[in-house]
Write a protein that binds this DNA or RNA. Sequence first.
DNA 1: CAAAGGATGGCCT
DNA 2: GGCCATCCTTTGG
Length: 228
Amino acid sequence: MKRRPENEGRAEHGSVERVPAELDTVKPGRLLDRSFFARDSVVVAPELLGCIVTANGVSVRLTEVEAYREDDPASHSFRGRTPRTAVMFGPAGFLYVYFTYGMHYCANLVCGEDGAGAAVLLRAGEVIDGEPIARGRRGETVKDRDLARGPARLAQALGWGREDNGRDMVGAVRAGEPTLWAAGPRTGITKAADTPWRFAIPGDRFVSPYKRHPKAPAAEQDQAPPAK
DNA sequence: CAAAGGATGGCCT
DNA sequence: GGCCATCCTTTGG
């Protein structure tokens, strides 16, 4: 079975594609093993959409992820291995947590072969279990939609912090129902923002809003037509 | 020692 | 939804 574009995307996403063939054989609910993660992060990323991550009493269905690799200027691993990025250069299936904006944490699943320096950032999801616990961490007044819509919100909802860097996630991620996916430009970064490695479930209300980084170079105009 | 990197919450339209 | 204020850690020089 081949992947193929099904229609022209909106300005945000270039195209909508069918569920990856590899996942057609992975039954929903089945735990993803280490070999699943030990492939190119750009291949693994879209396959993670719809999958369920469980940690500390909360389960999240992933709606948006982003791939990073060592050859990617926007990746923390781009300048080689450092104390901070050591986990990224280790074996796949482990959690890479980094601190950002002086107050938030973001979580990635390490991908690729041992030493590859690749990972998939978990950008957004829907809390499908343990909602009271998630709300306790996020705030009692937070709307359901915003419990895990955003990388730092998702990490907080799952109770992750610095001490979770390097945690083995094999056994904590399950295959989900097959889903459509779309690839688009990345948000929040200044370098290689137009490399279409941000993957999301089209139309899902738990996908975070696309916001280009103010300092990112302007997008090329010859691609998709203006939104409207 | 200086520079770069980044998401969220609040408030207003 | 758009615009604004907020800040510590890591890395390069």
